[in-house]
Design a binder for these strands. Structure first.
Lengths: 156, 156
DNA sequence: CACTTGCCTGGAGTGCACTCCAAGGTCTTA
DNA sequence: TAAGACCTTGGAGTGCACTCCAGGCAAGTG
């Protein structure tokens, strides 16, 4: 069974790993993390995390009394969601737009929903493209497996 | 039996649009296309097509007696394959590597196959990631659909 | 014949998403 | 208390994949 079959939304991955509004307390039960801890959790670099805050993709992160960032579980959840959006190929600028809508409060819900739905459509399209690509790839791999002499665009 | 059916015993999109070694004569039955025609066929810009040739992602394209490019059906097939690889997110540099292997002839088959298989693994992973993202997206869209008051990270 | 359109070249410019730097403050362990 | 790890900032730099530009050649049209 190839991926092809799992693709349409029946088997939902057991770990719906994220939704920025549900707090997922991290292993150690704290609610304060340094930037390097967050980098480790999220797989994003500390540079990227600072940059995300600068461009407004993160709401302002709390600071310790000496000015160091202290990320909360909420921040971690948001970052996880951002990570998901990033996987879709959504431009960072669009994610910032979404973040701004969130900051504007409840009256932007309709807009946010529309944005997410548009993203959903994109994702479905990307998945279809990738499956298509998979088909081509499998075909080509098959030609290499099957024949000593794979027909290829070569001068030889 | 078309290529489509051998590939993956599954409903495969009717148009397995590509395999660079089988010539797909284009609608008008010619084997000579100007760069702008190719741009129209492939959706790539003429700039990109020239650039691909420059960096060695295209084998040298024939020229007319006045020096203009004349793409063949073979070229079109190759470009379609390149287009598929591009969709996978494979870096252009890697595609160039593949193109070089092709140019080196039959003794690189094993290597090419390995490259394609590695790509396949990536694609499968990407598909899984996207499906995961879809789950998250659906969950979030659901929260907007269900409640007037979607729980969101907002100050309001 | 002028004009427009389409193509050629090498090289420079663009936009995106980071990624790093310099200069400095803080924290921890010896 | 001193070394070394870790953090801060604004701004500059990087790598990728195009994308465009200037200057010029060639073919078709009124």
């Amino acid at each position: 069974m190839t991926v092809v079959q799992m693709v349409n939304q029946e088997t939902v991955p057991a770990a719906l790993c994220v939704a920025e509004d549900e707090t997922h307390p991290r292993p150690d039960g704290r609610d304060q993390y340094t930037i390097s801890e967050v980098a480790a959790f999220t797989g994003m670099s500390a540079h990227t995390l600072r940059w995300y805050e600068r461009i407004g993709l993160m709401p302002h992160v709390d600071r310790s009394n000496t000015g160091q960032r202290r990320f909360s579980n909420r921040d971690l959840d948001w970052l996880a969601f951002v990570g998901k959006l990033r996987l879709t190929g959504m431009p960072v600028a669009d994610m910032v737009t979404y973040a701004e809508l969130v900051r504007e409060g409840d009256r932007t819900q309709r807009e946010r929903k529309a944005l997410l739905e548009a993203t959903r459509v994109d994702v479905v399209k990307r998945i279809a493209e990738l499956q298509d690509t998979l088909t081509v790839l499998d075909y080509k791999i098959g030609t290499y497996a099957g024949a000593e002499q794979a027909p290829e665009r070569t001068g030889a």
